[in-house]
Simulated assay, not measured.
Amino acid sequence: MTTARYRPTWDLALDPLVSCKLCLGEYPVEQMTTIAQCQCIFCTLCLKQYVELLIKEGLETAISCPDAACPKQGHLQENEIECMVAAEIMQRYKKLQFEREVLFDPCRTWCPASTCQAVCQLQDVGLQTPQPVQCKACHMEFCSTCKASWHPGQGCPETMPITFLPGETRCFYECSYPSFKN
C-alpha cells in the first residue's frame, strides 16, 4: 500500500485530498479512480489490486464495486478493467468470461476430451433429453447430458439407479446408520 503524501496545509484548499474506502488513505484526485457505473471512488492502487486478485483467483467474471455498502451495487466496465491491469491478466479475465458464457448457455457445451476442450453446439436447442454431440475439432461423439461416449437407447450413468450386490445395501446402511433397520 502507498502512504498518503505529506502536503502543507495551504495546498489543501487548492487540491483537496480524497479518502479511499479501501485503505482509508487520503490522496489527490489524480491518484484516484471513479467507477463509472456507481461513482464510488478508490485510490487507483487499491482498486487495481482488488481487480487483479479477483481475476487471478477466478472469483468473478463481473467485477463488482469493492464497497460492500455501494448504494448502486455497481460493476466495473470492461474498458475500466483493461486500463487497470496488464495484458495477460486482461486475457485471463476474457477467458473466464467466455468459459462462464459457455457454462450457462443451453446451446453450447464443452467437448469432454481432455486433449480437445473445444466448444460444441447442441443440435436440438431446448431439448431436455440426452442427445448426441459431435465435436467438430476432434470428432468425438458424446452425450450432451453426461458427457460420456454416446449411448443410444441407454440412460445416462448418473440417472440410472445404483445397484448393490446382495447384502451390500443392508451392510452399508446398518454400518453407517445403526438406527436404520431394513
Rank of each mutant, 00 (worst) to 15 (best):
M1N: 05
T2F: 13
T3C: 02
A4Y: 08
R7V: 09
T9V: 11
W10G: 03
L12F: 04
L14V: 01
D15E: 14
L17S: 12
V18I: 15
C20D: 08
K21Q: 11
L22H: 06
L22G: 03
C23Q: 01
G25V: 10
G25P: 05
E26F: 07
Y27W: 13
E30V: 03
Q31V: 00
M32L: 09
T33G: 02
T33H: 14
T34H: 00
T34R: 08
Q37E: 14
Q37F: 01
C40E: 13
F42I: 02
T44P: 00
C46G: 06
Q49G: 12
Y50K: 08
V51D: 06
V51E: 04
E52V: 15
E52G: 01
I55L: 03
K56L: 15
L59I: 10
E60L: 13
E60P: 02
T61M: 02
D67F: 00
D67H: 04
A68F: 05
P71Q: 10
P71Y: 04
Q73M: 03
Q73G: 10
H75D: 10
E78Y: 06
N79D: 14
E80A: 13
E80D: 11
I81R: 05
I81F: 00
M84S: 05
V85A: 08
A86K: 12
A87G: 03
A87K: 05
E88Q: 11
E88R: 00
E88W: 01
E88D: 14
I89G: 02
I89Y: 00
R92P: 00
Y93T: 00
Y93G: 09
K94G: 00
K94I: 09
K94V: 05
K95G: 02
L96H: 15
L96E: 06
Q97V: 11
E99K: 13
E99W: 04
R100Q: 15
R100F: 05
L103M: 06
F104I: 11
F104C: 05
P106M: 04
P106W: 03
W110M: 14
P112K: 03
A113K: 13
A113I: 12
Q117S: 14
A118Y: 01
A118S: 15
C120E: 01
Q121G: 06
L122K: 15
L122F: 12
L122T: 06
D124K: 14
G126T: 01
G126Q: 05
G126V: 05
L127E: 14
L127V: 07
Q128C: 07
P130Q: 15
Q131T: 04
P132F: 09
V133F: 03
A137W: 12
C138M: 06
H139Y: 09
F142M: 04
C143F: 08
S144F: 11
S144N: 11
T145L: 13
T145R: 15
C146P: 04
C146F: 04
K147A: 07
A148E: 15
S149K: 06
H151N: 05
P152L: 01
G153Y: 01
G153A: 10
Q154K: 12
G155F: 07
E158T: 06
E158L: 10
T159N: 11
T159I: 08
P161F: 10
I162R: 10
I162L: 15
T163M: 08
F164P: 03
P166A: 13
T169G: 13
R170G: 02
R170F: 08
E174L: 05
C175M: 10
S176I: 01
S176H: 07
